[in-house]
Design a protein around this nucleic acid. Structure first.
Lengths: 220, 220, 220, 220
DNA sequence: AATGAATGAGTATTCATTCAT
DNA sequence: CATGAATGAATACTCATTCAT
């Protein structure tokens, strides 16, 4: 292990020229592939450089350390996710609460379907694990959800809104996250979204929702 | 990279004298402390030995390899948890469904309150992480929950029972697990249990449950 | 590795009582078995003690270090060999030269048949290998052979007797030694002895010996 | 204990620059020196690196493991030997049998004079010792010798040709091998070759050869 | 005397990182 | 800019040996 200089601002130098940008891309690709295939254990800078067909010297030209490589990978994955989410069409004026919830869940599902394997390995990666990215990711998510809830405050029976947000985000995140590896088909078919939606709506509104198993369009 | 495929039955030799039993204890203590403080990254056999104030040779006298040390830690933690769970008094004859659910959740809460920090780090530990213990732990849990659900099948509206078990166990596990580090007081006060209970009962029975915020006895 | 105190006089203390003598025996037996089965690589003091069902403490009571254990093993094996050799009946008065040679070769064959596996492993054992035992063994052998040759000087055509002794002893030793692992049946049947005898007699006397393949009694 | 089952094709990466080729050389030199001086016992990768004045990392950059280092040493030594042997001028048409034998022996002598000390230690090295190189070396030798014998079958009186090959190769190997450390001058002067030649020719042809001690040109 | 717990220097090997070319 | 040779602290684990009980 080396002296750990902990996370300089990710990129040592903005690659100005095309070639440089291409190199960075090639490195990140290799990194992602190695991470997905072999997990964090297999993720060594030398291996990444080799797989990228680039000298480690070059790797370190663009990434000051291993962590920054991982960091950039996360940054990009987050962006990919978020852009996927933003792309969702805005809702109708004043839609039924259930639709709002369902839409939110679908966001999360979509996020996990962007690159599920990379997603999983990134979220389990030790040094940053939750800490860096998922934390902020979760925070941002919580903020949005809270805003959404406040906008519909009157329909929600739970007294402690923060607590509700907490329970809801954690529960959904976990179910979807696990399902992404364990029940991918249910995730894609929308069956799982149905279930979770019903669960949350019931919890939040205090009203029962009928168990209708209409044919649902798959997500992603 | 790991060529790991060992995992002998944990202890290399049963310590026969008092002295050696103490040594084993001291080592496990140090191991747990290091794991909690520095995560799996910091968990090296030499460091453990040093922290335990024991020679590395002594460590290997009792633990054939690093994994077995982790394994014993898990084994003991599991026992601690299970004994805590078994201790729960049996329920009344045919209790309200909500009570059954609440009791189950309380089990899980209790499990996470045994040694929350160790629990967290153990469950995030890569090589065995899920694989060995939490996997079986989760399976056992799922089996129990399913049995409980089947016993009350008539009260449950969800059609796919397996799916319900999946959603419920993942959701509860995650909420409680996260809360153990992020919202410990809510976990201890029972507030969180209330919320989750209401969420699950609504989901499973299809009926709303009143939001009563009666004073709840703390758990643990 | 420890500071190497190199070869105290083999036994730390002459075992006075029966129990002690038995312990020593048990240890040496275990040592020999381990050596034969696993080679020098497997030969560790702890393993020997365990196999002997004796504490290492006890082992070190009788053997000051690993080397001395090996040394005693060699000493005993040498004695076993030599006693086997002494047991050979003295020759007739003035036998044919070929008979003398054959008898000598048979001695060596016999030596290698005493405990061939132990013999092999001992003679290949690194730290002492030749150095300690085989050296002196070879020297003693050479001395005898030389004496025998001098007694029959007139029949020998080789001018440099020392050189003849050298060539002969090395050649015989090697052929027999190798045959003990590679051609054991030829060694036991006496076929090999025939060949080597003819070779040596021809070399030493300068006269051809007929190739008679009479049925030879097996040795050992 | 060894779980060895590796032995990749020796070099981890072909050194591309001059500098690295030099490093490889320096490492192998150091390895050879250590092996010669201290035997296999002293042969540790760290020691080799230190003696080579190279970091342990550099050693492992070129040699995937200890064995491969030894392997490369053997490979090179074998090449050195074989090239020495190939260099021998082809024989006249149908030379006297004695000349054929003598030439063969001289080959072996030459082989042992290439780097006698290294040769000795390599051939005694445990894990590969015989097993890998000397085995094949010996086999190749045996095959050649057998071919030569068959070409001259009519002149050979020994019935079992395989046995003759066995006896002859073992005997010569051993005498020469030992002489390389114990009687180097005799080996170099050719005196020993004379003796062994006479011994073998007598043995094989069943005819005596005169003891002529003409001045012999030294070998090597 | 016997036990077995304890020791710690030593072993092979990895990997993040630097730097001369 | 790129290369890849070089580094060395750190890792998991072994084993000869000592010594308190």
């Amino acid at each position: 292990m080396a002296k750990r200089r902990k996370m300089q601002p990710i990129l040592r130098k903005r690659p100005e020229q095309d070639r440089s940008r291409a190199t960075v891309e090639v490195i990140l690709d290799a990194a992602a592939r190695i991470l997905v295939r072999g997990g964090y254990e297999a993720f060594t800078t030398n291996r990444v450089a080799e797989k990228a067909d680039v000298s480690i010297g070059s790797l370190y030209q663009y990434f000051p350390n291993k962590e920054s490589l991982l960091g950039e990978l996360m940054r990009r994955h987050t962006i990919a996710i978020e852009s996927g989410i933003e792309a969702v069409a805005p809702q109708a004026q004043d839609p039924p609460f259930a639709d709002v919830v369902r839409a939110a869940i679908e966001h999360i599902v979509r996020a996990h379907l962007v690159d599920p394997e990379l997603h999983r390995v990134l979220s389990e990666t030790p040094p940053l694990g939750k800490l860096d990215w998922e934390a902020t990711f979760a925070e941002r998510l919580a903020a949005r959800v809270k805003a959404a809830f406040e906008a519909r405050r009157s329909e929600i029976v739970v007294r402690d809104l923060d607590l509700a947000v907490y329970v809801v985000t954690r529960a959904v995140e976990a179910v979807v996250h696990n399902a992404a590896t364990e029940r991918l088909s249910d995730l894609k078919s929308g069956v799982l979204t149905d279930e979770v939606t019903r669960m949350l709506v019931g919890y939040l509104t205090g009203k029962a929702t009928p168990v209708k198993r209409a044919v649902r369009a798959a997500v992603g």
